[in-house]
Nucleic acid binder design. Structure first.
Lengths: 239, 239
DNA sequence: AATAACAACCTGTCATACAGGTTTTGAGGG
DNA sequence: CCCTCAAAACCTGTATGACAGGTTGTTATT
C-alpha cells in the first residue's frame, strides 16, 4: 500500500527516513518560517500512503532534534533555531568517551576568540551591559559556586549573542552542558579566594574590552582565560 | 499505569522525553561504548511501564540524531560520533532563513584557521598525503565542477581529521551540506580558467604548508582561501 | 453582539497483529 | 565430542483501531 514514495532504487532507507525527508522537504519547498504550521499527521499519512505510526515517528524525530515544535491538540510548527540536538551529540560524544573535555575546550577557545572579537566590534550597548552584568553577578555571588557557574555560562552565551552570528551562539550554547559538568572541577583547583577572584577579574577584563570596543584586547583576555581554565582542568587530571 | 517514572513535579514533559532520558541515562550509567547493544524495546517497555509506542518513538528519535544505530531484527546499538543531527540543524537554519550562508562561512573560517594549524602540527604522513591527494584530484578533474566540489569538501574534512580533534571534524562535516548547496555559485563567479586554477592552487599551497609542518603558513593560505571564497559568494549576491 | 456550549479536529498513548530479519537452541549426523 | 543446519525464540518495522484529552472553530442562546 506504500510503493509510490519508495522507488526500488535504494535498498532500505526505511519508511520513517522517507517521511522525515518529506517533511523537511515540505518546509523547504513551502518556504516555511519559524512558527508556521505543518500538515497534520493525518494529512501526511494520506500524502505518503503510510501508517500514522510511521508519520508519527518522523514528526517525533524532528521534534527531538528541535527542528519542529509539537504539543497536544495543536499541529506541529516549524521551530526556531535551537541547540537541543547539538548538545545531545556533544554530550553523547563525551559520555561514550569519543571526545574529551580538553578537546571541547580547544574548540571553545577557538570559537570564543572569535566571538569575543566580533562582540567588541558589533555589540549594542544593551549587549555590552548584559555581558558586564553577568561578570558583576559572578563577583557578587562568588561564595556560591553554583551561581558563579551559571553566570559564567550566561557570560559566554551573551558574548556569542553579541557576535550577531547565530551559528556561533548555537555552538557555544551546545557546549554549555559539558561546561556544567566540568566547571566545578576547575573552580576547586582555584583553592584560594584570590585565585577565584582573579578568575572573575578575568571576566571583567573581557567585559571591559568589549565595552571599549577593542577586539584585540578582548581576544587577548579571552585567550588568557581559556589557557588558565584548561590548565586548571589539566591540574585536576581531566584529560 | 505509568506513574513511577513521571513524578508530579513537572507539568508535562511527555512520556517520550522521559524515555529518551532513560535511554541516554542507561548509556551513561552502564558506561556503554560505540557498538554496545541497548536493551530491547520490550525490555524498555517493561522497565518504564509505558507502551511500546512510546519506547519506539524514543529509540527512533535517538536514531534520527544518530546517537544510536537501529536495524531490523537486531537490537539498537550505541553509535559512533556522527554529524547527522548537526547537519540537519544547520540546514534547518539555512532553509528557514534563520542563518545566512555568509554567517556559516565566517564560522567555517574561524574553525578551519585552527584545524589547518593543528593539522600542520599533528598530521601523520598518511593524513598529509590524503590532503594532498584531494588537492591533486581537484586539479585533475577541474573541468568537472561536481567532482572538484566533492574533492574540495573531502580536502577540508581531511584537514579537520588531521587536527586529531573529532569535535572539529564534527563541525566541519556538519557544514558540508551547506557547502554542497552553495559551492557551484562561487565556482561560477570564477569565470576564467585561470581564476579557477588559481583557486585550486590555493588548496595546493595549503596542502604543502601542512606537509612542511608550518602552521602559520598554512593558516595564512587558509585565510586567503576563505577571504576569496566569501568574496566570490558576495559577488554572486549571496547574503 | 457577547458568550457559552458544542462539534470537529488534532495529538498522546495504548493494545494488538503480523511480516520479515537475527540470534539461539538443539537435534542429528559425522 | 564436534560440526552442521534447521527450527524456535526473539527482535524490529509497519499497520490498524481505539480512546483520552487538548485546541479551535461554529453555532445556538441570551
Amino acid at each position: 500500500m506504500q510503493e509510490q514514495t519508495d522507488p526500488p532504487g535504494e535498498p532500505n532507507p526505511g519508511l520513517v527516513s522517507t517521511a522525515i525527508q518529506a517533511i523537511t522537504q515540505h518546509i523547504r519547498s513551502e518556504g516555511l518560517a519559524p512558527g508556521d504550521p505543518l500538515p497534520s499527521e493525518a494529512a501526511m499519512t494520506r500524502q505518503l500512503n503510510v501508517s500514522r505510526t510511521v508519520v508519527r515517528e518522523a514528526f517525533r524525530s524532528l521534534s527531538a532534534m528541535r527542528l519542529i515544535d509539537m504539543s497536544a491538540g495543536r499541529r506541529a510548527t516549524v521551530a526556531k533555531l535551537d541547540t537541543g540536538a547539538m548538545s545531545m551529540v556533544i554530550e553523547h560524544g563525551i559520555t561514550t568517551q569519543q571526545i574529551s573535555v580538553q578537546q571541547v575546550y580547544d574548540v571553545r577557545r577557538t570559537i570564543e576568540m572569535r566571538t569575543v572579537a566580533l562582540a567588541a566590534l558589533r555589540r549594542t550597548d544593551q549587549e555590552a551591559e548584559a555581558i558586564a552584568r553577568s561578570a558583576r553577578l559572578m563577583r557578587e555571588n562568588f561564595t556560591n559556586p553554583e551561581a558563579v557557574m551559571e553566570h559564567d555560562i550566561a557570560f559566554h552565551e551573551a558574548i556569542a549573542a553579541a557576535s550577531h552570528n547565530p551559528v556561533f551562539s548555537l555552538i557555544v550554547t551546545a557546549f554549555s552542558g559539558v561546561t556544567r559538568r566540568t566547571w566545578v572541577i576547575g573552580w576547586r583547583t582555584r583553592s584560594s579566594d584570590e585565585a577565584q577572584l582573579k578568575m572573575i577579574k578575568g571576566h571583567e577584563d573581557i567585559a571591559d574590552a568589549i565595552l571599549k570596543g577593542d577586539p584585540r584586547l578582548a581576544a587577548e583576555h579571552m585567550a588568557e582565560h581559556f589557557d588558565k581554565s584548561v590548565k586548571a582542568l589539566l591540574d585536576a587530571g581531566i584529560a
